[in-house]
C-alpha cells in the first residue's frame, strides 16, 4: 500500500514536471506539422516523423533537405551527426538511471531529448522510474499530437505567427538554461565559453559540416574540467551525482 502510494506520488511529480515541456513542445510541433504539409509530406508520414524520429531540430532540418532535393542517405547521415550529442546526454543520465530495472532502459532511452534531458539533469534527486516514464511518455505524446494539430489546423494561423512558432524550440532551450546559470557563476562562464567555441568552429569550418555540435560539446565540457579543477562548487555537484 505504502509502495503504491509512493509510485502514485512519483507519477504525479512526473506529470507536473512534464507540463512546461508539453506546453513548449506544442507550438514547435505545430510548426513542424505545418511545415511538413507545405513541403508536401503525406499526413501519415508526418506523424511517423514525430512518433519515431522524435528529434525536433533534425526533423526541421530533414524538411529543408527534402525541399532541396537531397537524397535519403545524406539526410540520414546529417541526422546522425546532428543527434550524436544524445550519446553525451544518455551517458550523463546513465549515472542516475543505474538503479532502474534494466528492462525499461530501451523505453527510457527513446524519450531522451534535449529538453527531457535538461529537465532531468536539473531534477536529479527526483529521478525515479515512475517519474521518468510518465514525464518522457507525456512529452513524446505532446510532440506528435502537436504535429497532427499543426498539419490539420496550422494554416488557420497568420503567416507571421506560423514562423514565430518554430522559434519556440529555441526559446525553450533558453528557458531551460538561463535559470540554471543564474545559480552558478561557473556554469555561466562555461556556457559563454561553449557559445564562443561553437561560433568559432562553425564559421572557421575546421571540421566537416555537422561535426561542429558534438565536437563543440566535447571540447567545451573538457575545458570545464580543466578550468574548474579544484573548485568547491564542482566537487559538491559531482558528489551529488554519486549519491
Amino acid at each position: 500500500m505504502i509502495k503504491n502510494k509512493q509510485i502514485k506520488h512519483e507519477m504525479k511529480e512526473g506529470l507536473l514536471v512534464a507540463l512546461p515541456v508539453i506546453i513548449g513542445y506544442l507550438p514547435a510541433a505545430m510548426a513542424f506539422g505545418l511545415l511538413a504539409k507545405n513541403t508536401r509530406i503525406p499526413f501519415i508520414d508526418t506523424i511517423l516523423f514525430s512518433m519515431m524520429v522524435y528529434a525536433g531540430a533534425s526533423q526541421f532540418m530533414a524538411l529543408e533537405l527534402i525541399k532541396a532535393g537531397v537524397v535519403n542517405g545524406s539526410i540520414i547521415l546529417a541526422t546522425f551527426l546532428l543527434n550524436l550529442r544524445h550519446i553525451m546526454m544518455s551517458a550523463s543520465l546513465s549515472v542516475h538511471f543505474k538503479k532502474f530495472d534494466r528492462r525499461y532502459l530501451p523505453i527510457v532511452a527513446f524519450g531522451i531529448t534535449d529538453e527531457t534531458f535538461s529537465v532531468s539533469s536539473f531534477n536529479k534527486e527526483r529521478l525515479t522510474l515512475p517519474f521518468v516514464l510518465v514525464f518522457y511518455l507525456l512529452s513524446h505524446i505532446s510532440w506528435w499530437l502537436g504535429t497532427i494539430a499543426g498539419y490539420l489546423a496550422g494554416e488557420v494561423l497568420p503567416a507571421s505567427l506560423q514562423s514565430s512558432l518554430s522559434v519556440g524550440l529555441y526559446a525553450m532551450f533558453a528557458a531551460l538554461l538561463f535559470p540554471e546559470i543564474k545559480k552558478s557563476n561557473q556554469m555561466l562562464l562555461l556556457s559563454i565559453i561553449s557559445a564562443i567555441i561553437y561560433t568559432i568552429m562553425h564559421y572557421s569550418k575546421i571540421f566537416a559540416p555537422g561535426w561542429d555540435i558534438i565536437l563543440g560539446i566535447i571540447i567545451s565540457s573538457s575545458i570545464g574540467i580543466i578550468i574548474f579543477k579544484d573548485e568547491v562548487e564542482t566537487v559538491k555537484d559531482v558528489k551529488e551525482v554519486e549519491n
Partner: peptide
C-alpha cells in the same frame, strides 16, 4: 562524472547559438 555534469550546460548553450546562426 565531472565531464558529464557539464553536458547540459554546454549542449544547451551550443544549441541556442546554433539556432541563431
Amino acid at each position: 562524472k565531472q565531464f558529464l555534469l557539464y553536458i547540459p550546460y554546454t549542449s544547451l548553450s551550443i544549441l541556442i547559438v546554433r539556432g541563431i546562426i
